[in-house]
């Protein structure tokens, strides 16, 4: 073992080389004023006492603040309560801390002491005893001779965690049905509604330059259930109306928009933040999390940032009453990419 050969040279590189300077030893101890001047000593003691007193005052002040400033639920009320309790506490703590340190620095003996270090390594003789004990024990157990026993013991130890892991893993991921990523709450005929109030939107309401944050039309009961949050996490949509002349549409998507009104998923194709910063003049949609920028006028293609894919488009139409409705669900999974997205 290389470690052994070298470890005896515990540091002190300086001594190995002949042409090196000698360690001059510890510098001369410099005495503090308080060490020789009784007046300075007394003064330091008084300072320490005052600091402890400040702490006591701080504690008392914080108790007083507790009774005087009852948080009343207003911003000002909570702020003054937090402030006074905090200041009282800070004085109480800082008083103790500064007093103890000042005490140590000025009044406790400050002569440096030197303690020897010892090598980390166990001395050889003791090592031998340790090794002997281990081999005695191993011999006692007979682990080396009894191969089958060793195998059985190791196998048992290796697999017993399965008794916990199997039931855990079976349930920890819910129903493990990851195909849910593919579908959202949108369906043919689902009305587009305003987030969060749930008012359905008429095509005529969407004027040029305006942007609507949209959820699928649902009953109030559904919207107040927890399952809704998970559905909403996939279903949120952004609706804007452009001058039809500004809109570039792919041939196969010409009927996905209605009179310049387009609807795109609000969930970023990068890592899933809601992309919501719509710049009316450039038709650019910016994600505040990582600055992926999508061009709404051009199929929501990525023009900047870490996203690769365009935002999925929701095909829309207008129903008899003039309300915007979805023509179908999205034609691809919304949100961030995952391995089997296109399978």
């Amino acid at each position: 073992m290389n470690d052994n050969q070298h470890s005896t040279e515990l540091g002190d590189a300086q001594n190995r080389d002949v042409d090196r300077f000698d360690d001059p030893g510890l510098p001369e101890h410099r005495h503090r004023r308080a060490d020789s001047d009784p007046a300075a000593d007394k003064r330091a003691e008084r300072q320490v006492v005052v600091l402890f007193l400040i702490s006591i005052i701080g504690t008392v002040a914080s108790i007083v603040a507790y009774f005087v400033f009852r948080p009343d639920g207003t911003t000002d009320g909570v702020r003054i309560s937090t402030l006074t309790l905090g200041l009282g506490m800070a004085f109480a703590l800082l008083g103790i801390g500064l007093a103890a340190v000042h005490w140590a620095k000025t009044l406790m003996n400050d002569t440096e002491v030197t303690e020897e270090r010892h090598e980390q390594r166990t001395p050889d003789a003791e090592r031998e005893i340790a090794v002997q004990k281990l081999s005695d024990g191993a011999a006692d157990s007979g682990i080396a001779r009894r191969g089958v026993l060793k195998g059985a013991a190791l196998s048992a130890l290796a697999i017993f965690p399965l008794t916990i892991a199997v039931p855990l893993v079976s349930s920890v991921g819910g129903d493990w049905n990851v195909s849910k990523f593919r579908h959202t709450r949108w369906d043919k005929g689902t009305r587009l509604a305003i987030d969060p109030t749930g008012r359905p939107i008429k095509a005529a309401d969407v004027t040029i330059g305006s942007v609507f944050h949209v959820i699928p039309d649902a009953t109030e009961e559904e919207r107040e259930s927890h399952a809704w949050i998970t559905e909403k996490a996939k279903a949120v949509v952004l609706v804007v109306r452009l001058d039809p002349r500004d809109l570039k549409e792919a041939e196969d998507r010409k009927d996905w928009s209605y009179d310049g009104i387009v609807a795109y998923s609000k969930i970023c194709t990068h890592v899933g933040c809601p992309v919501a910063l719509y710049e009316q003049q450039t038709h650019h949609l910016l994600c505040p999390c990582h600055q992926s920028t999508f061009d709404i006028a051009d199929g929501a293609k990525v023009v900047f940032g870490p996203a690769k894919r365009p935002l999925p488009q929701l095909p829309i139409a207008v129903d008899d009453e003039g309300y915007l409705v979805a023509k179908s669900d999205f034609h691809e999974p919304v949100g961030p990419s995952y391995w089997e997205r296109l399978k």
Binding site: T207, S210, E279
Partner: peptide
């Protein structure tokens, strides 16, 4: 009115009360 980059939030989108 949606000045500059800001989109318009008309009264159908955000009502006057809102």
């Amino acid at each position: 009115t949606g000045p500059q980059s800001m989109p318009v939030f008309n009264d159908a989108n955000i009502t006057p009360e809102e």
